[in-house]
Design a protein around this nucleic acid. Sequence first.
DNA 1: CTTTAAGCCTGCAGGC
DNA 2: TGCCTGCAGGCTTAAA
Length: 275
Amino acid sequence: MPELPEVETVMRGLAAKLEGRRLARVVLARPDLRWPIPEGFVQFLSGARVEGFRRRGKYMFMRLDRALSVLIHLGMSGRMTIDSAPLPHQHLTLETDDGAIIGFVDPRRFGALDLVATAAEDSHRLIAGLGPEPLDDAFSPATLASALEGKKTPIKAALLDQSVVAGLGNIYVSEALFRAGILPHRLAGTIGRGRAGRLVPAIKATLTDAIAAGGSSLRDYVQPSGELGYFQHAWKVYDRAGQPCERCPGPAACAGISRTVQSGRATYFCARTQK
DNA sequence: CTTTAAGCCTGCAGGC
DNA sequence: TGCCTGCAGGCTTAAA
């Protein structure tokens, strides 16, 4: 489900409820999600105080006292609930010392839970290979252009590669490429400094706008508060095949939003304004 | 080395 | 109504 804006939104919701609280009760309903959950997971969390949260790409860390962090990945269908009755596929339940109930629900179980020393978060095997944070200043046209240099994959696939930039998924790649006026099929190696100069700001603006809207809600995504994100109403191309492109003057000029499949994933674009 | 395809799981929408 | 197929926000692995 969740790409960077959804993970950021979820993390903020959790932080508001959990920071400074102690985990009074921890219940794990199964020993594994995508991978086994480490031995002693429940014991390490039980009684711990939550110091803070950090996001890296689509991963988040819940930092506990005792120099330990819980790595949380929502995968495709993962979500967090606050003060909700237990739901089907709720694999982890946390209860705080002030009575808040946090649930981790993930029907498809592509998500992950792990423990890592706080000082070693960046060395975790799922984190170590990640590219730059797209909203950091270090993610610039120069760094992106150099990361794409010589790449023979389409730019769409390159931006989905988390080692190029961390946090983009299928929705926001389509949206950012539309915003930048770049065709998803264009080979990454042909982006160069000029187009990267449009693409990087487009990525940052797309993500910033989506975070401000609380992410995109489709299927089962809600903020932990139960509130829906509303960025899905701001999609320009994603899931809009056949609909008019708002940048084009009308049907005479443009056939509307196209949908194709690239490496097994749906891609949406305007064939007239993206090159 | 790089790039593509299959697989992991469940749930849901659409076609028959 | 039920069954079947395809598809879904991610990521890893094996194969090409």
